[in-house]
Computed example of a mutant assay.
Amino acid sequence: MTRRRFHARLRQAGIATVELALLAPILVVILLSLIDIARAMQANMILINLSREGANLAQRGKLSLADNSQTIIGQVAASAPPLDMNHLGMIYITRIMGSGTGSASRSLVLEQYRWDDSVNNRGFRVSGYTPASKVWTCGNWASGVAGTCVVPSGANAPAVSLMSGTLNDGEVIYVVETFYKFDMLFGIFKFGTLSTSSIGPNLYSMTVF
């Protein structure tokens, strides 16, 4: 009876070892996926705070946006750690004005700036990361003034759908967009309809002030 019990215990231990060996890869995948999701949530919360702070600074700035845009963006990006905004991030500031009255009013783009600090060598000139703005995509970045879009003015001013029909004539808003190229620890993991690829690679936040 003692030998039988001993062999039975050995068989049970062997089965448990095999089960652990089969389950271990699945457990590792789940663990890495959870770590990725936690990192993405942290990064996204930081981006939301960055866009809010940037919009607040842009709206309350004493200097014109043309003179102050890179300073605002640089100050906002400096508060981003642990995110590496200088190599993996991008920030846009867009100034929009309402034109017309009532539901027929349009939202016109007056200015747009991206992070391209030539003085401190930060932003686009370091990362080369330029995801397209979701508010309005500039097609002509000035060569002489880093990070400044040449926006058509007057009758050629571009209209956007953001808050169209909502802004009063002459009312101005500032839109700050933050992007981050999120590096996932574990590429793509699918579980039914869920996929870790849905949280990367470009995280995004927008604030209107």
Rank of each mutant, 00 (worst) to 15 (best):
residue 187 G to L: 08
residue 111 E to G: 04
residue 155 A to Q: 13
residue 150 V to S: 14
residue 162 L to C: 07
residue 76 V to Y: 03
residue 163 M to W: 08
residue 125 R to S: 15
residue 93 I to A: 01
residue 136 W to D: 02
residue 168 N to V: 08
residue 122 R to P: 00
residue 128 G to W: 04
residue 83 L to N: 07
residue 124 F to C: 00
residue 140 N to H: 11
residue 134 K to S: 12
residue 177 E to T: 07
residue 174 Y to W: 14
residue 125 R to E: 12
residue 178 T to S: 14
residue 121 N to L: 11
residue 161 S to R: 04
residue 188 I to V: 15
residue 91 I to Q: 00
residue 136 W to H: 02
residue 147 G to E: 10
residue 157 A to S: 12
residue 137 T to Q: 14
residue 153 S to R: 06
residue 74 G to M: 09
residue 113 Y to N: 02
residue 166 T to V: 15
residue 122 R to H: 13
residue 98 G to N: 01
residue 140 N to R: 10
residue 124 F to R: 06
residue 190 K to P: 00
residue 145 V to N: 13
residue 195 S to M: 02
residue 168 N to L: 12
residue 81 P to G: 11
residue 162 L to H: 08
residue 150 V to C: 00
residue 73 I to T: 05
residue 86 N to M: 09
residue 162 L to A: 11
residue 84 D to G: 11
residue 156 N to F: 12
residue 180 Y to A: 05
residue 188 I to W: 00
residue 182 F to L: 13
residue 98 G to Y: 04
residue 191 F to I: 14
residue 159 A to D: 03
residue 142 A to H: 05
residue 124 F to M: 11
residue 107 S to M: 07
residue 169 D to H: 09
residue 118 S to L: 12
residue 180 Y to H: 12
residue 139 G to R: 08
residue 128 G to T: 06
residue 125 R to K: 12
residue 112 Q to K: 14
residue 168 N to M: 10
residue 88 L to S: 13
residue 94 T to C: 04
residue 138 C to T: 06
residue 98 G to D: 02
residue 97 M to W: 00
residue 81 P to H: 08
residue 85 M to T: 00
residue 146 A to C: 10
residue 145 V to A: 15
residue 113 Y to W: 14
residue 163 M to I: 02
residue 154 G to C: 07
residue 183 D to G: 01
residue 147 G to R: 10
residue 140 N to W: 00
residue 104 A to C: 05
